[in-house]
Design a binder for these strands. Structure first.
Length: 456
RNA sequence: GGCGGGUUGGCGGAGAGGUUACGCAGCGGAUUGCAAAUCCGUGAAGACCGGUUCGAUUCCGGUACCCGCCUCCA
């Protein structure tokens, strides 16, 4: 199976060739843990979880290493700690717990490694020291700055030159910067801010250095895939490349860069700064199942913006219900070859879902389940929402009696009574299917036993 | 201002230089006392203007509009 991926760095679709097929390595930028994850945060998680699953399918379950970080040192966390009087560790531990619960609900596998920035401060300090030694960084007034002019390829990922950026840039002016685009590797902490001892005094790392240090520690100086939201392309990923390539010039850092487009709400990017976001937990609490959220997120190609709408969720829910009914009790076979080849073409999840429709229409339930699971759909653990708890004996007897009454009414050509029962079943949440061999029934979500009793 | 992405049928949303995407909704039919479910069939598209080509929605150029990044952000 050939996997092709659109590499942001080269702006072309490339055949994916792992450095080491027995250890395919992928790094995804994870959340800053100070609050619940919003739906926009969930998009890369689900998209790259799907890539993780595909890579495991192609190269072997044990042959893929996936690292996704937790940024647990950040001024937003400090602000929250100051505002609430809680400790930073307390806040970040709680937030990581929420994150795990919410992403688990979306069917995302836990990455192989989930490093916390605060566990790698020493490695960051080492890397900063190396950058200074090699002439790529300088200490000034308790800060350490990366000197962008020292790295000729700075701007290559995002297609900008340092001069272009400065032209119309809104950059932070600091007197100790040699160039306005220089960014911070280390900054001093005051008495209440979290800080660590370093050769440059007590301080804390800048945002970008953690990903360079942690990817190096966990995946090595060169690895296969680095992924994240398109909004991270600049400056975050550009700065990561500068740090990593200048620390380890013999290696190439990440071979392939993948960027997912943004999630939109009413035509605008969902973001915390715009305040137009809702959390994954909000949706789950409203009764939108995680599997449905996942289906909607995968129904648009990752490189295109997508709008979240309630209508999409309803359609996804109906489709998944149908598929789950078809697949009930079916043992998965091998994933469908066409499905895999479509998905392998730059992670075309929307096209892959179309293939699932084809399998379902062809009645290939075993192939449907096996294929859907590569997308993280139709997993055994995510299906509770689609099946209503089995009716108790009293309800079953009542439904059978009412069905019998409907049959009698029909025989007597009392269609008013028959229609009332028909409509009553629907209103109570009993789905009745009349087949050649008699009526079949099942309970829909929102089944209401009281409405059923009123029909007697 | 600089850089990047987009514009597909009623809605959502893919691929492919020439043949049905697909899903939902609609319409017609089968079935039904009427429905539901199911099955069969079916209409409908590619912002605008040029170019390349035997042929472009698909490639190239331009225009318009939309979105993102350039500041924390997935």
């Amino acid at each position: 199976m050939t996997i092709r991926l659109h590499n942001t760095k080269t702006r072309t679709k490339e055949v994916f060739k792992p450095i080491d097929p027995s250890n395919v390595r992928m790094y995804v930028c994870g959340p800053t843990v100070y609050d619940r994850a919003h739906l926009g945060n969930a998009r890369p998680v689900v998209v790259f979880d799907t890539l993780f699953r595909l890579l495991r399918e192609v190269y072997g379950t044990g042959c893929v290493t996936y690292a996704r970080n937790f940024t647990d040192v950040d001024d937003k966390i400090n602000d929250r700690a100051a505002a609430t009087g809680r400790t930073i560790r307390d806040i970040t531990d709680e937030t990581i717990g929420w994150y795990h619960a919410d992403m688990d609900a979306l069917g995302a596998l836990r990455p192989t490694h989930e490093p916390r920035a605060t566990d790698f401060i020493g490695q960051m300090i080492d890397m900063i020291g190396t950058l200074i030694e090699r002439g790529h960084a300088y200490a000034a007034e308790g800060h350490v700055m990366f000197e962008v002019r020292s790295f000729a390829e700075y701007g290559a990922l995002s297609g900008r030159s340092v001069d272009d950026m400065i032209a119309g840039a809104r950059v932070e002016v600091a007197p100790f910067k040699r160039d306005p685009m220089d960014f911070v590797l280390w900054k001093p902490s005051d008495a209440v801010q979290p800080g660590w001892d370093s050769p440059w005094g007590r301080g804390r790392p800048g945002w970008h250095i953690e990903c360079s240090a942690m990817s190096y520690e966990l995946l090595g100086a060169a690895f296969d895939i680095h992924a994240g939201g398109i909004d991270l392309q600049f400056p975050h990923h550009e700065n990561e490349i500068a740090q990593s390539c200048c620390s380890h010039p013999e290696a190439g850092f990440a071979n392939i860069w993948l960027h997912n487009e943004m999630l939109m709400v009413e035509g605008r990017k969902m973001s915390k700064s715009l305040g137009n976001f809702f959390t994954v937990r909000d949706l789950l609490d409203k009764g939108v199942p995680g599997e449905v959220v996942r289906f909607v997120l995968l129904s648009t190609h990752y490189a295109r913006p997508m709008d979240w709408t309630a209508e999409k969720a309803e359609q996804a829910s109906a489709t998944l219900r149908k598929w789950r009914a078809l697949a009930e009790g079916v043992e998965p076979s091998a994933p469908d070859a066409t499905f895999l080849s479509v998905l392998s073409d730059d992670l075309n999840t929307a096209g892959a879902i179309a293939e699932l429709h084809r399998l379902a229409a062809a009645g290939d339930a075993a192939g449907l389940v096996a294929s859907a699971r590569i997308l993280g759909l139709l997993l055994p653990d995510l299906g509770d929402w689609a099946t209503v708890a089995g009716p108790d004996a009293e309800v079953s007897a009542l439904i059978e009696a009412l069905l019998e009454a409907r049959t009698e009414a029909r025989k007597a050509r009392d269609f008013a009574r028959a229609d009332a029962l028909r409509d009553g079943f629907a209103a109570a949440g009993v789905v009745v299917k009349d087949t050649a061999t008699g009526a079949e029934w099942s309970l829909a979500p929102g089944f209401d036993a009281e409405k059923l009793k009123a029909l007697v």
